[in-house]
Amino acid sequence: NMECRVCGDKASGFHYGVHACEGCKGFFRRTIRMKLEYEKCERSCKIQKKNRNKCQYCRFQKCLALGMSHNAIRF
């Protein structure tokens, strides 16, 4: 039983190089595919399941810091 490295929810698998839940997987995919840019935040918000949708900037930064990558495809 793995935990999502981004928000701590139950991970659904290994997505983009990191154990992640469906919510964070979809969030990362949409951000990359649609080339979304979020308003910069300096607060280093703590991303948890209950508040993961509050600060998209910090959520995406955490995805990147954990090594999530669009190129991380498993063979």
Rank of each mutant, 00 (worst) to 15 (best):
N1R: 06
N1W: 03
N1A: 08
M2V: 08
M2L: 06
E3N: 10
E3L: 09
E3K: 10
C4S: 03
C4T: 00
C4Y: 02
C4W: 02
C4F: 03
R5P: 05
R5F: 06
R5D: 13
R5L: 12
V6F: 04
V6W: 00
V6K: 02
V6P: 00
C7E: 03
C7Q: 03
G8T: 04
G8N: 00
D9A: 10
D9R: 05
K10V: 12
A11D: 07
A11S: 10
A11P: 08
A11R: 04
A11M: 06
S12D: 11
S12L: 05
G13V: 05
G13N: 12
F14T: 13
F14S: 11
H15M: 09
H15E: 11
H15A: 09
Y16N: 11
Y16F: 10
Y16V: 06
G17F: 03
G17A: 04
G17L: 02
V18E: 05
V18D: 05
H19S: 13
H19Q: 15
H19L: 13
A20H: 03
A20T: 11
A20Y: 02
C21L: 00
C21Q: 02
C21G: 03
E22V: 06
G23H: 15
G23W: 14
G23K: 11
G23M: 12
C24S: 01
C24T: 02
K25D: 11
K25P: 01
K25Q: 11
K25M: 15
K25T: 14
K25F: 09
K25A: 14
G26L: 14
G26M: 10
G26C: 09
F27D: 05
F27W: 02
F28H: 00
R29G: 14
R29I: 15
R30D: 13
R30G: 06
T31N: 00
T31Y: 04
T31Q: 01
I32Y: 09
I32S: 04
I32Q: 05
R33T: 15
R33C: 14
R33W: 09
R33D: 15
R33K: 13
M34A: 09
K35I: 03
K35F: 06
L36E: 09
E37D: 11
E37A: 09
Y38F: 09
Y38Q: 00
E39C: 03
E39A: 11
E39W: 04
K40Y: 10
K40M: 10
K40T: 08
K40W: 05
K40R: 10
K40Q: 11
E42M: 11
E42P: 07
E42S: 09
K46L: 13
K46Q: 14
K46C: 11
K46D: 15
I47L: 09
K49F: 11
K49Q: 15
K49S: 08
K50M: 13
K50F: 14
K50Y: 06
K50Q: 14
K50I: 15
K50W: 11
K50S: 11
N51A: 08
N51I: 12
N51V: 08
N53T: 09
N53W: 09
N53M: 10
N53I: 11
N53D: 10
N53P: 04
N53A: 10
K54N: 13
K54D: 12
C55R: 01
C55L: 00
Q56D: 15
Y57V: 03
Y57R: 03
Y57M: 01
C58A: 02
C58Y: 05
C58Q: 01
R59A: 04
R59H: 12
F60C: 01
F60V: 03
F60Q: 00
Q61V: 07
Q61H: 07
K62L: 06
K62Y: 05
K62R: 08
C63L: 04
C63M: 10
C63Y: 07
C63D: 03
C63R: 04
C63F: 05
C63E: 02
A65V: 10
A65M: 12
A65P: 01
A65F: 08
L66K: 12
L66M: 14
G67I: 02
G67M: 04
G67P: 04
M68L: 02
M68H: 02
S69K: 13
S69V: 11
S69C: 09
S69H: 11
N71Y: 06
N71D: 14
A72K: 08
A72H: 13
A72M: 13
A72T: 07
I73V: 15
I73M: 15
R74T: 14
R74W: 10
R74G: 15
F75V: 13
F75R: 13
F75L: 15
F75D: 15
F75Q: 15
F75W: 15
